[in-house]
């Protein structure tokens, strides 16, 4: 039995050694899925232009990315949340923001078009459970939220909910796209998405009489800042990749500005 395990160990070490020497230009990025469409496009363009480089994207969410990059298991993290010592064990991380990504509040069509921040807060917390209390039709509210690890949920909790939690009765969807679909299809649906485009099939809510304008996204006050993190100072290939990803003009097509 022992030789079996020893053999496996040897094979694994051998493979790791081979890997270490053969491909110095392999960069792995892990973290938030909200900028995944952009990163897929940018990494494809990058590897096309820089031959020996290989970029691997992994999901897992912002926190997983930060933990893994500080442990040295991936080269770069992409996160909506700033790192805390709890996740990084105090390992210093360099960072490079990719841009701002607006967080929009969306509702099922035909309910309301405008809310005050206070109303929004009480709706998301579950204190108000019927749309009639905020000037809409008589219809129970279905809050659609994201997992606890989601960066946009963190932003909503700090900027809108003053540190409180979204109601435990909320429906939890794993991704932006799923939240959008759920709000579009559920009567009484209310949710939030990271998006630089005006989503179709739902009402984009104005908050405190401010409206999101695609041509002028800078005026919208709620946004996340997806940021690349790596162990300082990082090697040349990591810095090259970070610089490339943070400077592509087509970021705007993916809602980063």
């Amino acid at each position: 039995m022992k030789p079996g395990i020893g053999l496996m160990w040897l094979v694994a070490r051998g493979a790791a050694l081979l890997l270490g020497s053969a491909i110095p230009a392999h960069v792995s990025i892990m973290g938030s899925t909200s900028v995944l469409p952009y990163l897929r496009a940018a990494s494809a363009a990058f590897t096309e232009a820089h031959f020996p480089y290989r970029l691997t994207l992994g999901g897992g969410g912002s926190i997983a990315g930060l933990v893994e990059v500080s442990r040295g298991r991936v080269d770069m993290a992409v996160s909506d949340i700033p790192p805390t010592a709890d996740w990084t064990h105090g390992v210093p991380l360099c960072h490079q923001p990719l841009g701002r990504q607006p967080i929009l509040f969306i509702a099922h069509p035909g309910l309301v078009t405008d809310l005050s921040r206070g109303q929004l807060k009480n709706l998301l917390r579950g204190r108000i459970d019927n749309w009639s209390a905020v000037g809409g039709p008589k219809m129970p509210v279905t809050v659609v939220s994201r997992p606890l690890a989601s960066g946009s949920l963190r932003v909503v909790e700090t900027q809108v909910l003053d540190g409180h939690r979204v109601t435990p009765k909320a429906i939890v969807m794993l991704s932006n796209g799923a939240v959008m679909a759920a709000v579009r299809e559920s009567p009484g649906g209310l949710g939030f998405v990271e998006s630089g485009r005006a989503p179709t099939g739902v009402t984009v809510l104005g908050i405190d009489h401010r409206r999101f304008d695609v041509s002028r996204p800078e005026g919208w006050p709620y946004y996340a800042v997806p940021t690349l993190y790596w162990r300082c100072p990082g090697n040349d290939s990591i810095r090259t990749v970070a610089h490339y990803l943070a400077s592509q003009p087509f970021r705007r097509e993916f809602g980063l500005y």
């Binding site: 999901g59 897992g60 969410g61 912002s62 926190i63 997983a64 933990v67 893994e68 442990r71 709890d86 996740w87 997992p147 606890l148 690890a149 989601s150 429906i171 939890v172 794993l174």
Partner: peptide
Amino acid sequence: PGATLTTQLLTDAALYPPGTR
């Protein structure tokens, strides 16, 4: 709506990657 052990595992996997408390 609800959740099962497997779906909650998938949902919160990102919150606590291996190595966190």
